[in-house]
Every structure is written in structure tokens, then in C-alpha cells.
Design a protein around this nucleic acid. Sequence first.
DNA 1: TTACATTATGATACCGGTGTCACGGAGCAC
DNA 2: GTGCTCCGTGACACCGGTATCATAATGTAA
Lengths: 366, 366
Amino acid sequence: MAKLSFPAQTSREPAAKDAVEDFLKRRKKATINDVAHLAQVSKKTVSRVINNSPSVREETRDAVNDIIARVGFRPDPQARGLAFRRSFLLGLVYDNPNAQYIVNMQMGALDGLRGSGTELVVHPCDWRSANFLEDIRNFVESQRLAGVIILPPIAEDRDLLALMDQLDIPYIRITARSGEDASPPIHAQQIVSRDREGCRQAGAHVGELGHTRIGYVSGNLAYPSAHERRAGFDAGLAEHGVKIAPDLEVPGDYSFESGYAGARTLLSHANPPTALICANDEMAAAAYRAAFEKGLRIPEDLTIIGFDDAPIATRIYPPLTTVRLPTRDMARIAAETLIQTEGTVKPTVIIDAALVVRGSSGPASR
Amino acid sequence: MAKLSFPAQTSREPAAKDAVEDFLKRRKKATINDVAHLAQVSKKTVSRVINNSPSVREETRDAVNDIIARVGFRPDPQARGLAFRRSFLLGLVYDNPNAQYIVNMQMGALDGLRGSGTELVVHPCDWRSANFLEDIRNFVESQRLAGVIILPPIAEDRDLLALMDQLDIPYIRITARSGEDASPPIHAQQIVSRDREGCRQAGAHVGELGHTRIGYVSGNLAYPSAHERRAGFDAGLAEHGVKIAPDLEVPGDYSFESGYAGARTLLSHANPPTALICANDEMAAAAYRAAFEKGLRIPEDLTIIGFDDAPIATRIYPPLTTVRLPTRDMARIAAETLIQTEGTVKPTVIIDAALVVRGSSGPASR
DNA sequence: TTACATTATGATACCGGTGTCACGGAGCAC
DNA sequence: GTGCTCCGTGACACCGGTATCATAATGTAA
């Protein structure tokens, strides 16, 4: 037990030591061939070590790992990708690059990728463009992406989802409404936010404050989120026996401009609202402006509710009561899911939104 | 002149037609080998066509291009990159991912890349981390990036610039102060914003409005931008014989929180300012809050000036008078420069900032 | 001891492109 | 007609990895 059979091993090591020194002097990026040569094994064995193949003798593995560490070898993603026929890049595709949630989701995706050796390639695109699909196809296919995260609203595009299915590349969509109960159902991996629940809480909050004259600036009704949010607000208000006044409802499209126009209209009404619910924070910020221009005080004269808990919610004054949507976490989970699952499709992940009460909501004064 | 020697050509074409049909039926992504085979030339010739090599007979080129178009061949970036020893990816490295200018610059970089076949890989990093340089080195080197755009504030890191020089990869830094007159001078390609000029205009504006009691919340003095901006404001104010009150100056670090704390301090002063200049919009927005909490009206009681013309400048009420920094354009130019220049280093590009007067500035009332 | 699995390892082809260099033919001077 | 350059093209090696399959080394049963 004491004396191990060292003659066999030692024959390799000493020679290698010097060779490593020599190699390092050349200051060249190490390749798998260099490592194989220095470790006196074939490149395939080095490849096995890199890929954690089980069928490598521990002794060999250690020797190879030693050389790898000493020469600082890092396998080339390009070569690896070429051989594997897939890259080590995750794609983030989205329209609407100005929206804050896109920024958050990108940060979330980066959170999820950190330390994985996979990098994030961002690819904005134009949903209205004629070659929308062609552009994405080209991107995904030619980069041989390891996976794709599709952000709202284009995550609702059935043609895009069909394309992704056809390309046979792992992808995950982020959306406000599960596609499983759609017709036909969507079977893609998805991260679904429960906007409805958060909005229910917000609606209940407004009802609880005693408001009865309630205005609403909707989101873009082309997107499921707008309907989910509306349904949630309705449910919460109903808990207190109130509802959005039919004559105090205007369509918005999530933009500041549409929110401003909508809020102006509502606040100019002969019998204006004492509470104004906006389908996102951007429009709520616009409502602030409309209110201030009319000389209204928030929340004394007007309660305003938003949705998203975007940074702007705490930048405007008074800070906005809103519904927090953990966009960053959603994208993080999406990225983690894509790089962890090896072909296996994980079930839908549901994320809850929740009310955050701040200074823009107060009791009805009239 | 009439009869061209067509026998030689026609022998190739007809056979190919059918072959292309056959190929398309297989629904496989075309490779250079497929194209070479169908066009009845060597893959090297196809390669020449792809790369616009001049030494290809026009006739041959047309034939190859025809096949390329018919089979929808797109060269694989991975394989191409492996052979070229560089990828078709541009890296965007930055710290401070929450800042709005980062978002703008990313959009700008994407603008600059559009249609170039190069994709953008975003890589946030942590300047304070011990392996900051190692992380970036690893990223740049292992991805064999085609180029790197370095955003502020890490674009000021001399060690990072030295590393990039050593890695011998095209890169361009975006900064508020040219490195050419630094000691030792920085010879990197750079896009320099002239913050100072914009701030001079803003300072002159404040002076012109008759303010004499002027407060200042500085930027992070570790960054050149903070000094440039301050110098600009000083110069503009000096044009009207006024200056920032020594007792009304507090340090900020560009964050909302620091701006809030700073503004509160200044507005609590026994002899408070009638104008408050903030080194960026984020801090200006925080100053709004501090002012409102004190019951001050903007601009009647207090003039507030920001810098950046970030989206928030028009979201808060009243809209903020600020200095517009064309961050998006700067990054677009950076990206364009990197993909256009083939080894040749372009000179420094200077971008001007300019005052945008909105509703937060008004005449001094006292 | 021999026969037969079982494991560890390597030789070679391959992923899809580009670089090097050699070669055949056209154009020109002699 | 010969010798020369110049141009267009292709054969082949190579970029840096992985897959396949054969083979050497080891273990186990007979």
C-alpha cells in the first residue's frame, strides 16, 4: 500500500514541466493540440476532459487538467460550435426597444447567463417589417444559437413561434398570458406573468379607498397583457362593488403620448374621475403631467395607479402606487432554463405580480 | 461581335438546373460545398465570390451568385470565423447597467450594426471586481470579437485600455474627455462628447435668467465627465458674472439617491439657491422631489437644470431644462467605425452637447 | 491459462469555411 | 515558334474543436 507504482507516471511528468515553460514563453493562445502535446495524450482525450466525459482515467484527467490550468487553455467557442453545430450564444429578440421592461429583461437574461460561458446576443427587430420573420430566421439559423428568448409583444406572434418550432432551436417566450389554453394551444416553453392578480390587488386598493368615479387608460388591446390587466382591475374593484366608469375609459397603447392624451381627455370630463388607473407606469407618468397641468394635486385630488414598477415609478413625485412585475427575474429564469435544460422542455413558469402602495393613491375626497 | 462563344458556357448550366431542384428538395441548409458542387467550381472559388475577391471571371461569379441565391446559401459565421480567426460579433462592455445612457448607447450600437451581418454581444462587468480585467480578457479573447465598444465609465480605465491594446483587437472608447492630451496620452480610437460646451450654454442660460444664488450637485468626481461639466457650467455662468455659490455645492455620484440627498441639503440652507444645477437628469429628477417636498414650485421658486436629456427629462413635470447628449448617435458612430475601418485607425470623433430649454428654468424671482 | 467483456485511448474523418501554392492557358515581346 | 508574365482556378492543408470506430489495456469468468 505504501509504494505506489510510480515509474509509469513519472516518466510523463518531468519532461512535460519543461515543455510547459517553453510553451509559455511563446505567449501564444493555447489550443487543444498544445494541451494534448504537453500532456502527452491525444487531442480527443483532452476533448473528453473538457466535456467531462466519464470514460477518462482519473489520473489522466488530472494530468490534462493540470496542463490546462498551467497554460490557461480555454476551448475556442467558434471551433467548438462548428463541431457541435451550435454556438454558445443565447439570442434575445424583441421589438419595442425603448420600453423599460425590455431593459430589465435584458439585465435578467444576463443575470441568468453569468458564469455559464454563454454570451447574450441582442437582436431587436421590427414586427411591422415585411421581412420580420426572415430576419429572425436568418439571425437564429446563421448564428446557430444555443437558445432564444422572445420578449413581449412579439412573443405573441404565432408565425414566429411556428418558425422557431421549425428551426428546432430551444426557445422560451415571455408573456402575460399562457398559450396553453389558447386555440390552438401554444406548446412553447414560457414564462408567464400573472398580471391579473397584481391588478386585482390594485383594483381592490382603489375600491377600498372609497373611490367610485374611476377612470381607466387601457394598454394596447392588441396584446394579451392589456386584457389581463383590465380583467384584474375589474375583479378587484368588483370586490368593493365599484367599477370603471363606462364614460371614463379611453384606449392607450402603453406609450407616454397615448397616456397623456387619454388622461387629458378624462380629466377634462364634466364629471372627472377621482382615481385614474393606467395600464402601465409610462402612461401613469403622463397622467401626472395632465393632472398637474390642470392644477390637480396627487393624491389629494386624484389617485393615480400604474403598472410595472418601472424606475420611473419612484422618480416622479409623488412616488407612484403601482403593480410590481418582476420582469428581471422572469428573464433570468428564462435564461437559466434555456442553458440548463438539455432538450427537456420545462413546464410553464408562472410569476406573480403584486401591488406596491406608494404616494399616488389616497382616499376619495368627494 | 455578334456571336459570343457560348458553347463553353452552356455545357454547365442545364445540368445544374436540375441539380438545384434536387438539392432544394432535401431541405438542408446549404454549405459552401453544396454551392461549389452545383456551380461546378471549387469551394475556393465560391469562397472568392463570397469575399468579393477581384480575381474571379465575371461569368464565373455570376454563375456562382446565381446558385447562391437559388439555394439561399449564407456562409456560416462560425466556420468563417474559425478560418478568419475572428468572429462576426461586436462586443459592448460596460459597467453601470442601470444608467439610461447605457441603454441609449446599446441602441445606437445596434443602429450602427444594422444590415452589416455583425451581431452585438452585450457584456456587463463589474469594475470593482478583482477579476474585472480577467473577465473582459476572457470575453474578448475567447469570442475572438471583431471589435469592442467600451462605454463610460470603464472607458477611463488605463489598465483596460492597455489590455485591449495588447489583445490587438479593434476597439473604440466613448468618453467625455479626449485621452490624447492625457499623460501619458491615450491613442485609442475614441468618440468624445463635448460635455463642456453644452454645459457652458446651460450656465449662460442660468446667468441670463438673472440667478445669482446658484447651487450645484456634482457628478462622480472620479469620472472626467464630472469635471468637464462643472467647467462648462462655470464658464457659462462667468459670462454673466455669476458663479456657483461655494456654500451651495454638494458632491453627487450621478445616482438618484445622491441627488436627492444633495438637493435636500441645499434646499435646507438658510439662504437657499434660486437655481439648482445638477450634473445629470437623474439627480435633477431627485431635486424635483426634494423641492416638492419642501413645497417649492418649479420654476417659480426654483430653477432646475439637468444633463443628458434622458427620457426622464420629459416624463417629470415640468419638463426638465437640460443638456442634450446624443448618446445614441455616439455609439452608432462607434459601431460604424469599427465595422468599416479595416485596421486603419480613425481619428477622434467629437460630438457636441447642446442646451435644451424646457419648463424647469425661469427667471430669478428674488 | 485462455477467452471474453469492458474500459481507456488514439487515428482519422469531419464541421464549413479560408490561405497557400501550383498549374494551365491567354497575352505579349522577341 | 519560343519564352515570359499575368490571370483564373483548383488541390490541399489548415483553423480548433468533436464524432466514429478501431485498438490497446484492464478486469472477469471459465
